[in-house]
C-alpha cells in the first residue's frame, strides 16, 4: 500500500449517507474535514464595499495537506481567516470538524501570521497556558513535559524564560508554531508559518511538521498559506492557486501526487516535481524576464 493511498479521500458512499443529514455536530464523521461552501467575504471600507474573496467552494478531507498560494492581497489570508473563525463570512459558510465555524476554537490549531504571543508571558508560559486550557485530560507533569518537548522541537528550550519582546521575528514564529503543535488539534491552520525563518530553520520546520503529521497517522488536516512554491510542493497533497484580488477566486487546484515520505534532496530531481513546479510558476508569474 503506497503512502498516498493511506490518505485517500473518504469514499463517496459515505458522503452520500450524510447528504440527507445536514450538519451533525456530534458526528465523528466530519472530524478533520473542512468544507468551504460558496464563501464570500466583503469588508466595508471608506471607499465602499471591498470583496476580498468571491464565492469560493472547496472541500478539504481529513489528513490532507493543502496550501493556498497566490500573490499578496489575493485573499488567501482572508480565506484562512474564515476557516480559523477570525473572519466572518459575508455569505456562505465554512464547516470544520463537522461544525459551522463561528469563531476561533481549539479544535483548529492556528499559527497566526503575526505570531500573536501574549507579550507579558514568557515563552514557556505562552505555550503552557494554551496546553493547560486545551489538554484538560493531562496531569500537570504531562503538561509540563508536552511544553518542554514542543519547545525543544523548535529549538527554543534555552530561551523559555524570555518574553516575546526579547525574541527575533523568527523565534516568535517558532514559539507560535510550538504552541499550535502542542495542543494537538485535528486541523492545523498555518498562515505563512515559515515566512520569517531562515532557509535552514525553515527546512527543519518542514520536516518537523511532516513528522508531527506522521505521528498522528497522517490524520491531521493541515492547511497553510504560503508564497513559497517549493515549500508547497514538498509538503502538500494539493496546492490551491488563487487569482489576484479583489474578489479573488480559485484559479486552479494542482494535485501533488509525489510519493511519501518525500526526500528534500531527491525530490527536486523528480520529473513530476519539476512539472508541477513549472506549472505553478506559470500560474503565478506572467513575465519571466524584463523586456529591454
Amino acid at each position: 500500500m503506497s503512502t498516498t493511498e493511506t490518505i485517500a479521500p473518504p469514499t463517496t458512499t459515505r458522503q452520500k449517507e450524510y447528504v440527507h443529514v445536514p450538519q451533525q455536530p456530534v458526528s465523528q464523521q466530519g472530524i478533520g474535514d473542512i468544507s468551504i461552501k460558496n464563501l464570500t467575504v466583503s469588508f466595508k471600507t471608506p471607499k465602499g464595499v471591498y470583496t476580498a474573496i468571491d464565492n469560493i467552494s472547496l472541500e478539504i478531507k481529513k489528513g490532507e495537506i493543502v496550501a493556498f498560494i497566490g500573490h499578496s492581497g489575493c485573499g488567501k489570508s482572508t480565506l484562512m481567516g474564515a476557516i480559523s473563525g477570525m473572519t466572518t463570512p459575508t455569505t456562505g459558510e465554512v464547516i470544520a470538524n463537522g461544525k459551522t465555524v463561528k469563531g476561533p476554537g481549539p479544535d483548529r490549531g492556528i499559527v497566526f501570521q503575526n505570531y500573536s504571543l501574549l507579550p507579558w508571558l514568557s515563552v514557556y508560559k505562552n505555550i503552557y497556558e494554551a496546553v493547560d486550557s486545551t489538554m484538560k485530560h493531562l496531569s500537570h507533569t504531562e503538561k509540563i513535559e508536552l511544553v518542554e518537548n514542543n519547545l525543544k522541537m523548535v529549538k527554543l528550550w534555552e530561551h523559555k524564560d524570555k518574553l516575546p519582546g526579547q525574541l527575533s521575528g523568527g523565534m516568535k514564529q517558532r514559539v507560535s508554531i510550538a504552541r499550535a503543535f502542542a495542543i494537538d488539534p485535528k486541523i492545523l491552520l498555518l498562515d505563512e508559518p515559515f515566512g520569517a525563518l531562515d532557509a535552514l530553520t525553515k527546512s527543519n520546520m518542514h520536516l518537523e511538521l511532516l513528522k508531527l503529521w506522521n505521528i498522528g497517522n497522517r490524520e491531521k488536516t493541515i492547511v497553510m498559506v504560503t508564497h513559497d512554491i517549493e515549500e508547497a510542493i514538498f509538503l502538500c497533497d494539493r496546492v490551491v492557486v488563487m487569482n489576484n484580488g479583489p474578489a479573488a477566486t480559485i484559479k486552479e487546484i494542482v494535485e501533488v501526487n509525489l510519493p511519501r515520505p518525500r526526500n528534500k534532496k531527491d525530490i527536486v530531481h523528480n520529473e513530476e516535481y519539476m512539472t508541477i513546479h513549472d506549472k505553478l510558476l506559470n500560474l503565478l508569474i506572467d513575465k519571466f524576464s524584463i523586456n529591454d
Binding site: G103, G105, L118
Partner: peptide
C-alpha cells in the same frame, strides 16, 4: 482583537482570560 483571538483559539476559560489576558 489578536489577544482575544489567542484566548478563543486556545480555549481559555473565562478565569484564564481574565487573569492571563
Amino acid at each position: 482583537q489578536d489577544h482575544k483571538n489567542v484566548g478563543k483559539a486556545f480555549g481559555f476559560s473565562t478565569f484564564k482570560y481574565i487573569t492571563k489576558i
